[in-house]
Amino acid sequence: MQFKILPIKENRKLNSRYFVLKVPDKSISAQSQPGQFCEIKDLESDEPLLPRPFSIYKVEENTISFLIKIVGETTRNLSQKKTAEMISILGPLGNGFKIPKNKSVLLISGGIGYAPFPFLKNKLQKNGNEIQWLHGGKDKYDIFSYDITNYTEDGSIGKKGLVTDDMPFILGKNDIHTVFACGPNQMLKKVSEICEFYKVELQVSMETIMACGMGVCCGCIIKYAENGEVIYKKACKDGPVFDGRKVVWDE
């Protein structure tokens, strides 16, 4: 874990909803695992007060990048940052995905839940895994790649429907070792029900409101079922990747 103040190398707008922030870095990326995250703060504005957590999107030679969705003040400010403007980065934080070897795996992402998966896919491939990737969104603006199977609720790109629609069929027909999922809680809940039914391992990456990012403040609690009781886990330090079949999904 490091705290660094870095200039933006590139801020690439994908569409009205998403952008990719790239900063020069060797040391944070060298420590990073897929599924880990960094806390980023815009240094030119005091507000919002807290940095925000973002999944590590890609680690390339001498750069680390983040896929970000514009949802509030921080992300809007960051989307307008220009090259060479400074941001602070704390990371890598949390526990990443556990990577199997030589298995068949299924990736399920929804919307901005796409963010940790390019880095994950890279690592999965290096470990000889066979990968299927389903991605879902509301409309065509939530779609990032044509090399995977896409679903949109309005049918503007890919199959019309939800990313979970074909999951039972795929899990029933194939010998899937692990499902990796990241997306809205409603989607994750559905994914966990399907994985529970087919008794397939599930690793989910969770998002919560967060402060310190390193397990100190106990602000980012996830409800988790273990040995018949509900316990509290810290998303930042115990996660953000959890056994999806043990997370308690509130309505």
Binding site: E47, P48, L50, T208, I209, A211, C218, I221
Partner: peptide, 28 residues
């Protein structure tokens, strides 16, 4: 240190944090 009590405390139900203008609300 963070506050220690005699017996372990599980803490409050999430959500425990909310940021507002120039401040942070918490109920850990």
């Amino acid at each position: 240190t963070k506050t220690i009590t005699l017996n372990p405390k599980k803490g409050n139900e999430p959500c425990r944090l909310a940021e507002t203008r120039a401040g942070l609300l918490n109920s850990i």
